[in-house]
Structure formats: C-alpha cells, structure tokens
Design a protein around this nucleic acid. Structure first.
Lengths: 335, 335
DNA sequence: CTGAAAGCGCTTACAG
DNA sequence: CTGAAAGCGCTTACAG
C-alpha cells in the first residue's frame, strides 16, 4: 500500500501538505493541490485508518448493539441508524449479542480501545456493570433506543409502550372482548413491563381485572406458538383475544389457533406488536401496533452524534405508535 | 484512558515488558508478570486498538457485505460467520449495501486503509471493478458466499442451485404437475440463472418445455405477491404449481392465491427457497429448499481466515441443500 | 502557503 | 528475562 510519504515524494511537497490537501484543501494553493491530487490518483492512495485514528483520537465508528439480529424488527432501525451515520461520515459496527453477555462485553471494549466513538444500545439485556462503567469513568457516548433501564437515566429514543398497550386493549374492549390474555416478551424486560402495566390498567378501568392472564415468550415465533397452544387449550376457559408483544409471536398464535380449529377473528382476535413486513402477508393479516422504526434509528443516531460532539443531551424522546387494524381482530363470536 | 506507559510506570518496568506480558506471557518472569497484571487491573488498561493495528499492520476486522440486511435469510449466515470469527479473535463489520453501490465502495475502502483484513461477499450485486481491483493490485483476501460471479473465479462457499431447482421441479412433476411456473429473483443474478437452468432442463427432460413460464421478483414478499397475482389471474391458463426463488416470495404467492380464492395445495402447489424460520408458521406451511445457512457462514469465514493467514485457497465449496416437504404442495386438483 | 518536527500508543529486533 | 530505541502512517501547532 502506498503511503502519504510516497504521494508527497511524487507531488514534490511535504507530507504535511498532502495531509492538508485532504483535510483543508482551501489552505493549499491551487497549483500544489493539483499536483497532490494527481499524485494521489496515480498511486491510488488511501489514508491509513489506523494511523489516522491514532493521531486524531477518534475512530468514526459507532457500535450498535442488538439483542438478536434475526429479529426482523431491527433491520429497519439499522437502516435509519446507517442513513444518519454515513451522512456524518461514521461507520456502524453491528454487534449481535445473542444471549451471550460476553459478546456485549467485547463490543464495549472497543470504546476504551479507541476503536469506537460511541454505543447505540438497542437492548437492555446487557451486563449492568458495563453500562454503569460507561456512565462513570470513561463517560463515553451512549444512547439507548427502543429499550431502557428502569433505574439508569440515559439519552433514549423509544415509544410509549404503556399507551400503545392501552390503545390495543381499549380497542379490543370496544369490540366487546372481555377475556383478553397477553403473551409478553421476557418477564424482566422493561418495555414488556410497561406494556403489561398498560394492559392491566386498561382491564382494571373496565372492571375486567379478574380476566387478566399473561404468559411470557421470548418475542420469537415459536414461543408464541407454544404459549398460544397453552392459552387456547380446549379444556380451559379460553380467551377471546390475545395481545402479543411481537408480531412473530402473534404469527405463532395464528398457527396454534389453526391447529385447534379456531377461526381468527371469529373465535379469536389477535393483536401483534411492531408491524413487521410479513404481518401484512400472513393469514389473516395481522392487526398490530406500528413503531416508527426508521425514525427511531435516525433519532438515536442523531443523539449519539451530539454526544460525540460533546453536547450535553438528556433527552428522552418518545415517538408515537399507531394501531393498525387489519383482519385478525373482530367482535367475539358466540364463543 | 490509561496507556501502556502508565502501566509500565506502576509496574516498575518498561513498556516493552508490558507489551510482552500481554502478547507472550511465557517470555516474562513470573514476578514481573504478576506486577504487570496487577497494574493493568488497577488502572483498567485496554490497549489502544488503533496504535496496535498501525504497528501490527492488521485490524482483526473483516467486512461481511450483504445485499439487504432485512432479508431474514442472512441472519443465520451471519451467526455462522461470527461464531468462527470471534473464536479466531476477529470482529465482523456488517455492511448493508442496499441498492447503493457507493456503499459497497465505502466498505471496500476499508481494506487499503488497513481497517479490515478481508471481505466476505454475500452478494454479487457490487461494482465489478471493485472485485477485480481486489484481485489485482491489493490482492486482498476475498471470499464469496451464496452468490458468485460467472466469470471471476473466487474462493466460494455456496449450494448447488442447479440441482436444488431440479430436485424441486422433479418433485412437482412426480406429483403430476405439468404447468409449473417460476418466480425468480432478479434476472441478472447468477444464482437465479442456475435455478432457472435447473427448472428448464427438468421441464425439458419431461417434455414439458412448452409450459415454461418465468416471472422475476426481487426476493421480497411484495414482489412475490404481485407476480403471483399476475400468474394466477383467472383469465389465463394458470399454472398448477409455482416454484419461488425465496420463501418470502412464496409467502407473497400464498396471499395472492388466497385473494383469488385458490386453495393451496388443492388448486395450487407452492415451493419456496431458503427455509426461513417463518416458513413453518405460514398457512399452509411451506414446502421449501433448506440451505445449511449456519455452515455456509462458518465455512466462508474459515476460508477467509486461511486467506488472511496467507494460504492459497481456490476452493469452491458446494454444500448440500434439502427439499423439505410440508403442506403447500400436493397433487393437482381437477384444475 | 509550506515544511520540519514532534508525537499519537503500540510492538519488536537488537543488545545485554 | 529485560530495556532502549526505532518506527508504523498520520496530523497539527509552530515557525517562516
């Protein structure tokens, strides 16, 4: 690989001038600039990123940590993140934590190593110590999106999960449902607790608290199927509606209902969460709560850029959700 | 951030010894090693990655370029890549090219900049010049997975798309289908052409060439729906089976069939490709061709590591696919 | 507008 | 087993 030295030699100037031509071209005379530009093209020079990072003390890379890359919910958020990041000249390193906290740790290590300038946390399922140390000593730029910690205040972009759940349950009650069950995401997840609170409060407000019944899944389609089967088992007094914390789980419930010969929406109404692309293509099409995923990603990245620039940001941005009514919900049958 | 200098000062040794303690601990006396280790823990030292990369002339980062991160087909491949990469101490930078060749270019630029040690190309939809230059001058490590270029030989891990298509069509013919249509991915895509060739050859072998009919989509669910609608329009002599180049498109066809009041599989058989997680949860469950996604990712990463180590690799690894018969295929009805 | 020089934080051949 | 020193390729304050 050619270096700045070689370019300088060919252009007949110092390396400082080559560097300036790249960084602040208006500080270089037109003639010199021309010679340098030609020399760069001639040898196909690309600045060495490691040297540059070392010198500038910045990597122009940010890390986006996901709980699970296979969850389609995240792909559009990532697109939003990348749009803003690339425009600002930043690279996005996508970190998939899976269920492995060690992986999250490895990504956090990039910060003190000067390999990343900030972290976008799309999951709260990460060792608390990591986040706290980020807050304390290093005090490096950290923004949360979608999820949050109950007891750690961070710049955050999220939706109002409480209200979204209220809206879904209100809608089901307006349809005359009374036995409304929930399939939640992981019990410990703060956004799930918010949704659960909205569910319970709305039920209570309508005198239906006694019918409350929540089972937990893991957001994945299989867990929705399994818990759906259990909620809909013929022996029980089955719910006429199920509110799911993800579309994937709702699609799992659809399969459980089919298997038990229950018609959706006649025998069972199903509401999902997220509005993933396939929710419009399952049978029946899913009523769900749409999140502004692309905007969540964009806003979160904007906050992070602000933090990196040294601005003080304490914003908790709450974006609006929207209940999308499709075919999986209706008035309860004679059930 | 603390540096190696500070650690050396606290441990009462030179920076060289600190460095050695990290890189080759057995070359350091036990006593010194102890002092250094304690000093590192005390100040919370993490080596500066940029300085290290600059010095070692390697980044321990590889780039995985995807055509579209929202395609669920890729998530398991990425998991496979990351498994192998992390074990070998490499980071994976996921690059989403979308439809923007400029983005691919930006990721390739990391190579000469010494910010990445190799590229895993999961799409052939990338400016040819980029790949060729990779081959020529820089000659940097490059491995293809899933896709390939017709006329550029690269180390590749893929499945036998031709045989997979033959198998699917043979199966449909064995069921007595004669009018079998295809919804292909992008016409220019080499893997789609392979599948198309398998489709045509098998039809021809059975004297059914006259019934060949292929429409193109983009692998996404919406395009499958649109092309399905067009293939199944009541006015035409409609096919009794459709072979789709992705599960998402097959799910789109399922919706088109529903909308036209066609029963699957009685009126129409549908075969997908990929065996994405949701293919088991749609209605009816999808007959499809399963690819060993995790292994594709692992093998590709292994090849790339070999290349990085300087081994000469010209392997074209072909992994086996499997036809998974579920509920979306059956004997044609009275048609 | 331009160059000489220092220095970012590491690693490693060399000498002892 | 250990240290002094050079150097990886940049950038930038300083001097002119």
């Amino acid at each position: 690989m050619s270096t700045i030295k070689e370019v300088a030699r060919i252009a007949g100037c110092s390396t400082a001038t080559v560097s300036r031509t790249l960084a602040t071209p208006d500080k270089v005379s037109e003639a010199t600039r021309g010679r340098v530009t030609r020399a760069i093209a001639q040898v196909g020079y690309t600045p060495n990123g490691a040297a540059r990072s070392l010198r500038r003390r910045e990597s122009r890379t940010i890390v986006a940590l996901l709980p699970d890359i296979s969850n389609p919910f995240f792909s559009e958020i990532i697109n939003g993140i990348e749009d803003v990041a690339h425009q600002a000249g930043y690279r996005v390193l996508i970190g998939d934590c899976e269920r492995d906290p060690a992986r999250a740790g490895a990504y956090f290590d990039l910060l003190p190593a000067n390999q990343a300038d900030g972290v976008l946390l799309l999951t709260a399922d990460v060792p608390r110590a990591l986040v706290e140390s980020a807050q304390h000593q290093g005090r490096f730029p950290l923004v949360m999106a979608c999820e949050f910690f109950n007891d750690i205040d961070l710049p955050t972009v999220a939706v109002d999960n409480y209200r979204a759940a209220c809206q879904a349950i209100d809608y089901l009650i307006s349809l005359d449902h009374r036995r409304i069950a929930t399939i939640s995401g992981p019990a410990a997840n703060p956004i799930c607790r918010e949704r659960e609170r909205g569910y319970l409060d709305t039920l209570t407000a309508h005198g239906l608290a006694e019918h409350a019944l929540t089972l937990c899944g893991d957001f994945g389609v299989h867990s929705g199927y399994v818990q759906g089967l259990s909620l809909l088992a013929p022996s029980k007094r089955r719910p006429t509606a199920i509110f799911c914390h993800s579309d994937e789980m709702a699609i799992g419930v659809l399969k459980a209902a089919r298997q038990l010969d229950l018609d959706v929406p006649k025998d069972l109404s199903v509401v999902g969460f997220d509005d993933i692309r396939l929710s419009e293509y399952c049978d029946p099409e899913l009523t769900t709560i749409s999140q502004p995923r692309s905007r969540i990603g964009q806003q979160a990245m904007r906050l992070l850029l602000g933090l990196i620039r040294g601005e003080t940001i304490t914003a908790q941005q709450i974006l609006a959700t929207q209940l999308i009514v499709r075919q999986s919900t209706g008035k309860p049958g004679q059930g």
